[in-house]
Write a protein that binds this DNA or RNA. Structure first.
Lengths: 228, 228
DNA sequence: AGTTCGGATTTTGTATCCGAACATACTGGA
DNA sequence: TCCAGTATGTTCGGATACAAAATCCGAACT
């Protein structure tokens, strides 16, 4: 009986699997920014033909992860500081919306479960492991989006992962900043659990804004260093 | 010389043309919500093979315009009131961001040009032509997004067109409401031209919120009528 | 009469194939 | 020696071909 449930309406398309696999690889940094992706070679690697691969590439392109120059292939989106700040400008309002809707969610249990996330976040702080923190940070923001229950907002997940995972070279998280971020997360979670939408939105926006500002200042100081 | 410029690095891909054509058809209401799209027949209609067509379908799927059930084809996204309000929740913050960034745009001339849009908007009001109003309304909101200069926000254009054009059956614009909407647009434009970002954002959000509320109330009264 | 089973047909999903554009290496000339 | 032009191989984009699943339809059975 339950066995049948498993197979119910779940024929998998290669496109979806391939798109997901490539997404994860890019998020994981397997292909550095600007890397050219070779269709034949990728297809060989994934043990599939180029047809479903190309469909997946178009999907990732429309998600903004890949950039294609007609006739000469596709490459991982080349990031610069302008792109990064544009992406964060969008994230400010997206995360604000997610926090507000999450706070207004009827599922009080799910809201309370957000607090568990803090445990994992703090664990990544104590013996500082940048990769662990990045992972938990993304998880937290995605959890907020999931809790919002808004499917169109959920479709924006790629931007969250892009800013936090793909644009990592620009973010360069450091322990003291991560600590501050986790503290901000904590206050957002409190507002969400309290069901205070407006406060949750305001705090979430301020949180992203402070991340933006840190990146902007780090970037300009980095520029200065590069020139020195 | 200019002639050469035209072809410069602009080999067109069928995928892009087809995606654009299908997008416009869906926006225009050629395929009612929930319509199943027949691949072979569509390819025949567009005079192309199924390969580029399928890539275009995947793109539109990832934009949220199409919904596909693996193995049994793809159909125009079936809308219901929940989807519509979720989409408008997102639009509230997107339009708010667009207005704020537009107001902060350095291109004062481009900001001033927004005022011209009002002329066309009012023209659609006087002898009331719903289709004209919808078109000008979409144009206005897209212009704001374009003016924002944020590429990631620009990538959200499909949601704007989806809410205003695809979900039309739910919107059902009426002249007296359109008139109020244009008045709101006018105030947003004033704030943008004045370079007052926060006010522009607040007004734009309020504008979308009022649209949401109108749709929600219309929907519930419609339900009541249907039951009566 | 309604329902269910089985086969034919359609339609989707994947693989293979082909032509054309792009990149690159080479040759010849200044 | 350096540059232009040409030739050659590679890679992309699109069309065709094939396999498997889903739908449709009719006949047989309850």
């Amino acid at each position: 009986m339950e066995r049948a449930q498993v197979n119910f309406r779940s024929r998998v398309r290669l496109v979806d699997e391939v798109a997901e696999e490539l997404r994860e690889r890019i998020y994981a940094g397997d292909y550095p920014l600007g890397t050219k992706l070779h269709q034949e070679q990728l297809a060989e690697d994934l043990q599939i033909s180029r047809t479903p691969l190309r469909e997946a590439l178009r999907v990732l392109e429309s998600e903004g992860l890949l950039h294609s120059e007609p006739g000469r292939g596709v490459r991982v989106v080349p990031a610069d500081i302008n792109k990064v700040s544009a992406a964060y400008q969008l994230r400010e309002v997206l995360d604000g919306l997610a926090a507000r809707l999450a706070a207004e969610s009827r599922d009080a249990d799910a809201r309370a479960a957000l607090a568990d996330s803090l445990i994992d976040q703090r664990a990544a702080l104590d013996p500082w492991v940048a990769a662990d923190y990045t992972r938990e940070n993304v998880r937290f923001h995605l959890a907020l989006i999931a809790l919002s229950g808004n499917e169109y907002l959920a479709a924006e997940a790629p931007i969250v992962r892009m800013t936090s995972q793909v644009f990592t070279p620009f973010a360069l998280v450091e322990p003291q900043y991560a600590q501050r971020a986790v503290a901000q997360h904590e206050r957002i979670i409190e507002a969400v659990i309290a069901g205070d939408g407006p406060t949750a939105e305001r705090l979430a926006r301020a949180h992203i804004r402070s991340t933006m500002e840190r990146i902007a200042s780090r970037q300009s100081s980095g520029q200065a260093q590069a020139r020195a």
